[in-house]
Design a protein around this nucleic acid. Sequence first.
DNA 1: CATAGTATCGTAAACGTTTACGGAGCGTGT
DNA 2: ACACGCTCCGTAAACGTTTACGATACTATG
Lengths: 356, 356
Amino acid sequence: MVDGGKPRPMKGIRQLAEHLDISIGTISRALNGKPDVNEETRKRVLAAAEQLGYVANQSGRSLRQGTTNVIGLMIQSSKETVENSDNFFLTVTGGLQSVFSRHNLDLIMLPCPHDEDPYEYLKRMVARRIVDALILSETQRVDKRFDLLAKAKIPFAALGRSLSGVQHPWADLDFDSVANSAVDRLVARGHRRIAISVPTSDINLGFVFAEGYRHALERHGIPYDPALIIRAKSSEQGGYQVADELLRLEDRPTAVILIYELMAIGLYRRVMEAGIIPGRDIAVVGFREAPRAKFLQPALTCFRTSLHDLGVELAEILLSSMPAYNHLYPDTNRQRTWSLELVPGESDAFYLPSSK
Amino acid sequence: MVDGGKPRPMKGIRQLAEHLDISIGTISRALNGKPDVNEETRKRVLAAAEQLGYVANQSGRSLRQGTTNVIGLMIQSSKETVENSDNFFLTVTGGLQSVFSRHNLDLIMLPCPHDEDPYEYLKRMVARRIVDALILSETQRVDKRFDLLAKAKIPFAALGRSLSGVQHPWADLDFDSVANSAVDRLVARGHRRIAISVPTSDINLGFVFAEGYRHALERHGIPYDPALIIRAKSSEQGGYQVADELLRLEDRPTAVILIYELMAIGLYRRVMEAGIIPGRDIAVVGFREAPRAKFLQPALTCFRTSLHDLGVELAEILLSSMPAYNHLYPDTNRQRTWSLELVPGESDAFYLPSSK
DNA sequence: CATAGTATCGTAAACGTTTACGGAGCGTGT
DNA sequence: ACACGCTCCGTAAACGTTTACGATACTATG
């Protein structure tokens, strides 16, 4: 057997092997940190790989190992839900990656097209085996996607709770306590008719938010009025519509809780058109994103949190439910609500004269 | 034939072949629409695949074909971008997908972690051969990534121009003409000291914007004052800082052009703190996102465009530079600026008394 | 009947990895 | 001398596809 010249240019690991005159098996072991390889040769291999710019072909590796080292984050970006969702996802993504990168896992975002059914899209992605695990977001109240993933035996976690697949791992903002403390704060200022905005879609956070609101009212002995639950898009336009609704109500609320802070822009606009000054004639409390709310006029009272850290938490929850990694995250609480901190502004600073 | 009731999930093409008693070659040909297969058997194969939920394993296919049918969109989500990107990426993504889906191409987003060098990140993604082609965004004035992609012979296009790789395909908003018409409009209202905000980073759009502004001034014979070019983050906070700078200038400008509309929130806040009313004492023009600007108080004059259609355009540009698809997009202009439409608001509606 | 052509299908070889298995070399203890 | 264990490395078989090639049956043509 003459292993003489090079009849044709080899690619990949074979070329590297030929260049070093080492077998491909050893090369692979050296690169993957396997124990049974001389440290001396490992150094040579690593150096040569670096120099020649060799990186293992992912398809070959995936095919052999049955694993892709890629985690998918599915986002729906549907027109109806949250229009300003990018920085939300990108910030959470940062937290996710800071954990995944420690395990050489890459995160990719899977944006489901508007015109495709999310369930079918997910089914396709799962079947193609392009990712090892999945993170779902914008969870619906009942969400068939959980059943699909459970049946396909693909590890997953969710950014947001859901009623389906009760035991699924998730991390979620604590909508419940936010609604509670918002109501507490407003009641302390003399408000009794408090409106709340919820999303138009069936996204579960809307229900959780509304339930928290309802419980808080109960606690204060304030009657619950369904007319004060206003469905609107989570955008400036939605805020404008919320104000429209408020103005139409006969016994007009003195306060309103918005589920998304940018809605305040539209709401401010609309009530001021009606001669009503936010922070003087009507109290407004928003949700999330304190740094932005600070610059509204009047500054919006709202709730701050670190979406980055929420991402970190969610990543750990996911890894703890992946067989290959769960030993690293032994007793992780797999269902975790993430708290927010109240940031007082001027939008609800006044006290109702009728109170006390 | 007893149909047990629950068809268990298939592992691969071999089991499908066994189930149908057809060779795997024929199965593959049938599924991929190859000509030399009987229509009758093709129907049988498709039906069985559908029933058993068989979808080709992507790794196997990629390995054999050397192609993944996946297009990557790299986003950097640097701290600054995170704050202002809003639904920018998701909207463009929608346009991209509407084209790609016609060719059975899936789009994934590749978010480069904050703490990783974009160049190294891209290099890794390229080497792993996880995508067939790439779309770059947030292009820098000089951007080494283009050289990397050119050398790796990976098809690519950019969302945004760059000075490097002069001949690279791109689609970009027409910052030049936006700056021009903003200046024209302000000059027509009597303004001669017009400030402009640009991003703090080296992202190329800032330079293009500033150049357009400069040319417009030249056209009107207005002297160019570097002090009127204000670097600030593209966020509410950035807008606040812009206002700060403006107030500090001795010969205070009467108008300001913002590169990102949300900056107006912070700017409004700051100038009003100084007793200056936007739309009366100072003219403000913003860039992009007319629907949102409408709800600011006073409504912001800005420029509207369809980011979705920009995505469509960009997708076609990319496909036209991919060998496998370029025959479908024969004479596509591979460098395309995308125009915007002025949406008049109230923020610059007044005329300077000194004019005329 | 021989031959060529056509439609359809099966066979097997890739694609680039990882890894189970075994073998060579060497040291050590009996 | 022998057995044994250890360290290190090469060999070859997978992983699930696609596809070049050839085989078969059938039809048409001479």
